[in-house]
Amino acid sequence: MSSISLSGVSKFWGDTIGVKDLSLDIEDKEFLVLLGPSGCGKTTTMRMVAGLEKPSSGTIHIGQRDVTSLGPRERDVAMVFQNYSLYPQMTVAQNIGFPLRARGVGRNEQRRKIHLAAKMVELSDYLDRKPAALSGGQRQRVALARAIVRSPAAFLMDEPLSNLDARLRISMRGLIKRLHNEIGTSTIYVTHDQLEAMTLADRIVVMRNGEVEQIGTPNQIYNHPRTAFVAGFVGSPSSNLLDGRIENGVFNASGISVAAPLKGDHRKVILGIRPEAISLVNEADAELHGTVLAIETTGDATLVTLSVGKQELIVKREANCTLEPDQAVSMKTSQQGFFFDGESGLAI
């Protein structure tokens, strides 16, 4: 078990930026999630930690060792791939034991560790099967067992759940969380699913265009987004982002007026409001007026898309919401929204 430290790490392919000047410290036993949209550099970052990509500049330390120029073999990390990457001609037991075989571990010791790892991921009954005879969830559990079998310095997980169906994803998420609690090895986990990030992470790194937008606990990321991008990316559904200006302590956009504790008149700002932070009120208390555009039922809630002035807004309502399309509604923000600078996107 070790800490991992990236300092000033960049990755370029010609003019294309993969990762730009990334510095990050992952503490021992920490579960760190790299979160961001496709192409934000999160997988590249993980591959550089694994040794599968060479950084264009910067250094990477695992524990006290500088591993920047070492190959994957010498880094003592284990990786779980999105598409499982099992060895198709080997049985489950041989797959799990391969890292031990590669390190010349004795047969008896191999057998003992394989059984232990298989038991942890509940695969003891499948040891003689080939990957082709397993379901997606079972295959990913083999990949997990192959990672934990040799007690590496760190786990790297590259969107391990994205090929699974929704129900399996939840149970596998629970398994990964439980394994991390039991084993306690530092883990870097890459995902574009913010719900996975929120539920698993000790800390989340939100990335965009190869750069870090914010590093923080799930709570900090959700309640105190550092940029408009983070507010817009995290949350399900994500925050409404409204473009407007500050005038006399009021945020104004076309058809929208919300009290804003901000100075500086005529300043361009972005207001972020969580869909669950908007409540329907009677006309007299209203801050916002809008018309219902669409209604989506998710089972436990209803998502209402409204047209407010020239902008669209999503409001999260209870499941038995009775709104109809084209209905006019009056609204009030029940929590303070997030204000971001209109130019830089940074929180004010």
């Binding site: 040794g51 994957p72 990457s85 060895y87």
Partner: peptide, 15 residues
């Protein structure tokens, strides 16, 4: 052959 399988082997410590 998917490159990930070879990458998995490299990370697993195989020469």
């Amino acid at each position: 052959i998917p490159i990930e399988i070879e990458e998995a082997a490299r990370v697993d410590g195989a020469s």
